[in-house]
């Protein structure tokens, strides 16, 4: 519902950086334009900060149609090219059932029950990544973390 008024940054969804991970919380009913803008913002942030993961919290999203589904998939694909893993967290049951019925199972997308789970998933992978980097499989998922600026330890 934020889209009806000119919110700061013209209806942008805030992108937070937590350590090596970008946390993006989507809420309510998104405009198509806002969603497309978000897609660019995330790519930019991933490139600028060299993060290793992106968590999209959609627990506050009431519907995901094929447009938003495509946006989520493309965010993940673009972040993947920039060597960051994307996890979609907290999809509601009704939304999941509808997406499946719609025919959109988003096979390439990684998911988690909550943001905490998503963060845990990403940090577990970050730990495994150095070893995996020697093998062929994990090589592209791991990138030297150079752009750490404001890491906060728990």
């Amino acid at each position: 519902m934020t889209g009806s008024f000119p919110v700061p940054h013209g209806g942008h969804v805030p992108v937070l950086k937590l350590g090596d991970v970008l946390l993006v919380t989507l809420q309510g009913d998104l405009h198509d334009g806002t969603a497309e803008q978000l897609q660019q913002d995330i790519s930019q942030a991933v490139a600028d900060h060299g993060v290793t993961g992106v968590v999209l919290d959609i627990s506050g999203v009431e519907i995901v149609d094929s447009f938003l589904g495509r946006v989520l998939a493309e965010i993940a694909a673009k972040a993947g090219l920039l060597a960051a893993q994307t996890v979609v967290a907290g999809m509601r049951p009704a939304v999941a059932i509808t997406l499946v019925e719609l025919g959109l199972t988003l096979p390439g997308l990684r998911t988690a029950l909550s943001t905490e789970d998503a963060m845990r998933l990403l940090s577990a992978e970050a730990e495994q990544a150095p070893q995996a980097a020697k093998g062929a499989q994990g090589a592209q998922t791991w990138v030297p973390r150079s752009g750490r600026t404001c890491r906060e330890s728990p």
């Binding site: 009431e62 519907i63 049951p93 939304v95 509808t98």
Partner: peptide
């Protein structure tokens, strides 16, 4: 119901688009 609502709203969104 919630699921019925979500399905209908999603269908409406697709068609409106």
């Amino acid at each position: 119901g919630l699921v019925e609502q979500t399905k209908l709203v999603t269908a409406a969104s697709e068609l409106a688009r």
